[in-house]
Design a protein around this nucleic acid. Structure first.
Lengths: 143, 143
DNA sequence: CGCATTTCCTATTATAACGGTATGTTTATA
DNA sequence: TATAAACATACCGTTATAATAGGAAATGCG
């Protein structure tokens, strides 16, 4: 499985927040209950979202979290990349990887680059707003 | 990193075998030396390739391995899928996964399906013969 | 002020996968 | 028959995953 719970849960949290926005801050417990995810585990995920300025938190009574920008400004690819710590198919394509000594004779590098490209092109095409558009039962093509 | 050493080494082994074919069976030690990969570790990878009828092994003196079919008949996607034990972005898209109870309300399923599709389309387009065509230094775009 | 509430912060943990090593058995060839 | 090779099984250290636990700090309200 390519994507871990960090990336998957993060997307679900953002969609949930977008769908329940407008009423100020949303407390994590509500999201946890709706999404059926442990509140404590969600904390560690939301912390990353705060660190990358995707959501803002407010402490104390009446506090909670809310999106720091409009859903159509949140690119899915960005979320997945920092939640997963990079999405490159192979290490040598990573941002801060030391250059591979085999780079000049490698017969697979071009293939991996191409794979990386099609993945990035796809995930950077989507925003949280796009995911919201998916209507209920829209995916359930099995009768 | 999406692809582990199993998938990466498997491709390198197959390309190596294809490039050194014609001289009958190739012993694993030669491949291990050329590819600078531990012979013992390669054994576990080649075992999978044998199990899936990609290569055939011959024991005893003068034995070794060779491809069981032409390089242009070996699809990279197939190799990666069984070496990695599936390449689906999320578990619910896997072959033998139990149906997800949230399938009818999931707002991300369509996105994941699309991602799976672009990955499969890409990796199933390549064969080992295509990887061989990559000329030396062809990837080294840094002067 | 003081209390409830809620985020924020710092561990700890169980399980599995990854990447690799070690030892030994079987089979074919020279 | 000795040798060389695949084949088989077991083991091991490290890292990542997916959480859980406990408390500190801040905010709003009566």
């Amino acid at each position: 499985m390519l994507i871990s719970t960090k990336g998957r849960y993060a997307l679900r949290v953002l969609i949930d927040m977008a769908e329940h926005s407008g009423t100020g801050y949303i407390k994590l417990m509500d999201i946890a209950e709706r999404q059926e995810i442990s509140e404590k585990y969600l904390e560690s995920i939301v912390k990353e979202l705060v660190r990358h300025d995707i959501v803002v938190g407010l402490r104390g009574k009446g506090g909670g979290y809310k999106l720091s920008k409009e859903p159509d400004k949140i690119v899915v690819g960005d979320i997945l990349r920092f939640m997963e710590g990079g999405l490159e198919p192979v290490a040598c394509l990573g941002k801060q990887s030391k250059p591979c000594p085999k780079v000049s004779v490698c017969r697979t590098l071009g293939f991996w680059r191409g794979l990386n490209d099609v993945i990035c092109q796809y995930i950077d095409k989507y925003t949280v707003a796009d995911l919201m558009l998916t209507e209920e039962n829209g995916n359930d093509y099995i009768i």
